[in-house]
């Protein structure tokens, strides 16, 4: 027996421990624990959460100094009441905290970076509800038939050109000597729309494709119509786009056809109806 006590309020004590783990500066004491013991537990809690979030946000972490990153984790632990028992959802908890509770000065594009990294995690872990069956058909067939989208493909739009970071820096292993250059690039990022298609391929690899404004709207419309009661072909959508944006139908049709072929190769779109057993379309290769 460690301590002879008779009237310990256990529930209050558990809250005291949790409070001290969250904010050891404001709540440094836990009844019956030495300062060293509080320190050991606090370090374990901090390191565990820091390590989990580091793995989720290599890009966001690299975009700020070590000191600010530590501050983000400290505030997250102190103020955010995480509800999820699932570790892979911790990324979403941090995003929620940064969007609604944090009072930390971050780069202007931080929200975009955090969102993109959350989307990459969601895409990797998304549990399919529909079967996706790839197709290999001619452009003519693609354009003129109803299109089905891979559930694990979605388009994202941001205010900053964060896609450029992936081309310039080795995001998953930024060498220390590039850290300052990376932070500078992130901080000087101009306000300019950026569109990205995030998808998971047949080998479960998460990939990204840069989209321009036209391809973003094209994909968004395809996505809106995919699986809807109204059977709409890409040709119909392309005509609609050209008319709305007042562009040459011929040019939009050419670009749209090229995109569809690329997306078919990447298993992002298919002419095969996931609800039918075979994919017997005229023109199927």
């Amino acid at each position: 027996m460690v301590h002879a006590v008779s009237d310990v309020d256990d529930v209050r004590h558990l809250h005291d421990i949790a409070r001290s783990m969250r904010d050891p500066e404001q709540f440094p004491h836990v009844k019956g624990w030495s300062a060293e013991q509080v320190g050991v537990y606090r370090e374990l809690v901090f390191n565990n959460i820091e390590s989990l979030l580091s793995n989720c946000f290599p890009l966001f972490k690299a975009s700020i100094s070590e000191k600010i990153w530590s501050n983000v984790i400290e505030q997250f632990i102190a103020y955010h009441k995480s509800k999820t028992p699932y570790y892979f959802q911790l990324a979403t908890e941090l995003q929620d905290f940064l969007n609604h509770e944090a009072s930390i000065s971050l780069p202007r594009c931080a929200q975009s970076l955090v969102d993109l990294e959350c989307q990459l995690i969601l895409c990797a872990h998304f549990q399919n509800t529909k079967l996706f069956r790839s197709s290999n058909v001619t452009t003519e067939v693609l354009i003129n038939n109803e299109i089905y989208l891979n559930e694990t493909a979605w388009s994202l739009g941001y205010d900053y050109p964060i896609d450029s970071l992936f081309n310039t820096f080795p995001i998953n292993g930024l060498p220390p000597h590039q850290k300052n250059e990376f932070i500078e690039t992130v901080n000087s990022m101009p306000l300019k729309p950026c569109f990205i298609l995030v998808y998971r391929n047949q080998h479960h690899e998460v990939r990204q494709l840069k989209l321009n404004t036209l391809s973003y709207y094209f994909f968004t419309l395809l996505s809106d119509y995919s699986g809807s009661a109204e059977a709409v072909t890409p040709r119909h959508i392309i005509c609609q786009l050209a008319q709305t944006l007042n562009l040459s139908l011929e040019k939009v049709m050419t670009s749209g056809a090229e995109l569809l072929q690329q997306w078919q190769r990447e298993c992002i779109v298919s002419v095969c109806n996931p609800h039918q057993r075979s994919c017997l379309l005229h023109g199927m290769d």
């Binding site: 256990d10 421990i17 969250r22 809690v45 632990i77 009441k81 570790y87």
Partner: peptide, 16 residues
């Protein structure tokens, strides 16, 4: 592993 939300670690209970 927490009170008012998860702390994602194993914290000891009082033996009462």
């Amino acid at each position: 592993s927490g009170a008012n939300g998860h702390l994602y670690d194993l914290l000891p209970l009082p033996f009462t």
